[in-house]
């Protein structure tokens, strides 16, 4: 019992933050990294042992195709590099739109508040894949601006498709952070004759900023790990390229676990430090306030 109590308490605390932010926490721990590595090494070893001698070995095949999976052909940014690019831009647009939407959710004007609430809930509760499909299929492949024609490549459509759910979730992060402040802050600002706008920008938002950073990073990690969804729509990112690489090697079954575990490993290596950093920040902020 005595051993279980701290764990129960910890899980309760985590459930509390999750309820506040409406998301699950990427609670990556050091032992996850060790497990990840062990599984990878073990799988590669097993595949290596099983592979027929006359064909290229799984390790050699992986090494050969690694640059292709990581960034595609020489001088292009496809493969995993495209996953990163999609995640950066989707996060950028999603954050800008999400903060705006979140501020609209605390507007004093009822139509603005209701409208932005509806938009937020709509995109927050739609499956990411459905949003992605819709955008990829509905969005034109080029946009006419006067006599200029701007092509819209598939990966750019994917950026928009991912930015929408990110926007909705960031909107909730903003609203949640503002609501988590005690009402006394609003009241004392009001009693000092601050206008609503001044109160928001000088008193409320600066205090919210810190609280918003950890969930914001958390959402970035979730987004980065979701970007392979774009492969279903033929975007030339790492999962598409892994499939292509294996295809070029004749789709040998023993390559499958090696290649896909390698993919998992790159995503893990990328998100693990970010998730750890977010956990550290959160602890620091909790101690301070």
């Amino acid at each position: 019992m005595d051993v279980l109590l701290p764990i129960a308490r910890q899980q309760k605390a985590q459930a509390m933050t999750e309820r506040l932010e409406g998301t699950f926490r990427l609670n990556l721990q050091p032992h996850h990294a060790i497990w990840m590595l062990l599984i990878f090494v073990f799988t590669v070893g097993a595949a290596q042992a099983q592979a027929p001698r006359e064909l290229i070995s799984p390790i050699d095949a992986l090494v050969k195709w690694m640059p292709f999976i990581l960034w595609g052909q020489e001088g292009t940014l496809n493969g995993f590099a495209l996953n990163l690019m999609i995640s950066f831009f989707a996060m950028l647009f999603g954050t800008i739109a999400g903060v705006t939407l979140g501020l609209m959710q605390i507007s004093l004007l009822l139509p603005v508040r209701k409208g932005s609430w509806f938009v937020t809930q709509f995109f927050r509760n739609s499956p990411w894949l459905v949003l992605l499909f819709t955008i990829m299929l509905l969005f034109p492949f080029e946009i006419e601006l006067g006599n200029m024609i701007i092509p819209v490549p598939d990966w750019m459509k994917a950026v928009i498709g991912f930015a929408l759910p990110v926007m909705a979730n960031i909107s909730e992060v903003v609203r949640g952070a503002v609501r988590s402040l005690p009402t006394g802050q609003w009241e004392s600002a009001e009693s000092l004759a601050f206008s609503r706008r001044q109160t928001l920008w000088m008193i409320i938002l600066p205090q919210c900023f810190k609280r918003m950073i950890p969930p914001w990073i958390n959402w970035y990690c979730i987004l980065a790990m979701a970007t392979p969804l774009a492969s279903i729509m033929g975007v030339e990112e790492s999962v598409s390229y892994t499939a292509q690489a294996m295809n070029a090697e004749g789709d040998r079954p023993e390559l499958l676990p090696v290649f896909y575990l390698f993919l998992l490993l790159i995503f893990f290596v990328y998100t693990y430090p970010i998730a750890r950093w977010s956990i550290r920040l959160e602890k620091k902020f909790v101690v301070k306030t």
Partner: peptide, 26 residues
Amino acid sequence: GMVFQQYNLFPHKTAIENIMMAPITV
């Protein structure tokens, strides 16, 4: 002017900034 039971100071500002903020901005 009003003073509350729970003080309601602005925690991200120092004491003197708390005092100076309203006269300057308002």
